[in-house]
Design a binder for these strands. Sequence first.
DNA 1: TAACTACTTTATAATTATTCTAAAGTACGT
DNA 2: ACGTACTTTAGAATAATTATAAAGTAGTTA
Lengths: 140, 140
Amino acid sequence: MQKMNNKNKIFIDKLRSSGLRPTKQRVEITRFLFNRKKTFHFTVEALKNSMNLKRSNKISTATFYNTVHALKSAGYLKEFSLENNTSCYDTNITSHHHFFDNGRVIDIKSDKITFQKLPEAPKGKKIKNVEVVIRLENNN
Amino acid sequence: MQKMNNKNKIFIDKLRSSGLRPTKQRVEITRFLFNRKKTFHFTVEALKNSMNLKRSNKISTATFYNTVHALKSAGYLKEFSLENNTSCYDTNITSHHHFFDNGRVIDIKSDKITFQKLPEAPKGKKIKNVEVVIRLENNN
DNA sequence: TAACTACTTTATAATTATTCTAAAGTACGT
DNA sequence: ACGTACTTTAGAATAATTATAAAGTAGTTA
Ligand SMILES: [Mn+2]
Ligand SMILES: [Mn+2]
Ligand SMILES: [Zn+2]
Ligand SMILES: [Zn+2]
């Protein structure tokens, strides 16, 4: 029943390839997440509050979680933990690093950090990925 | 009432300098944490289960949380988030890095990782610390 | 030592993020 | 339009953590 207009094609495709039918709610969520120029970092609660604020017909918590999880499983989102033990999702799925600045998360492109020395993986293991967090504080 | 035997002096001192009276429960917890050769990484729940398993008079959850928080505030423990969004505490308070190996956490000494290139902090900010997580997977 | 007071421990309730459940609603192929 | 499978949703359940308040304990003082 979703109108397959060009404006939404890219979002509908993301949903389909995540194994989800492109319902009204899911397309809105997906457009909200990916219809932007810059990387977006968000918690599910913040996403829900932000999207539902302006809506009369609120989208349910479960739909937010389900949609975000499916997009993450399909590889359209990355997930990591914030310092308050909540999940932060990231529309930048490339391998990259982060500044943590008092709850604010800022991307660091992968090529901005290079290593002179890295340890080897323990016996029987190999390195899956390397992620750097640079914590910031105010000057002075 | 706590016997000030030499065996416990070091733990009692940690508690005192964390602003806590060295009660029986607190000394036991502190000794359990620090009376070991190698770095210890733990969640509060795991610590509680581990210590209470062998005890008839269980120490309460609140006492575990309170003691760990005080030791952390005093700088005797470091805290970071695991991938399942729970707090992991670390008896190694030096600046260092970690392997994450399927829920297992392994220290990487600071000098095992050096950088060739690091980004500058954004305007008005400075770098507080840099922490690397190397995620592992099995070979093959 | 007895009493006083402040600090602790503990059981339990509350909170928060997240996941689960089941019922009512909707979409899609026929 | 019909039937079935997938969705949405409200609300319950869960897990980690924090808060509350009553009962216990320790250090200090008389
Ligand atoms: Mn949680
Ligand atoms: Mn939590
Ligand atoms: Zn990012
Ligand atoms: Zn460590």
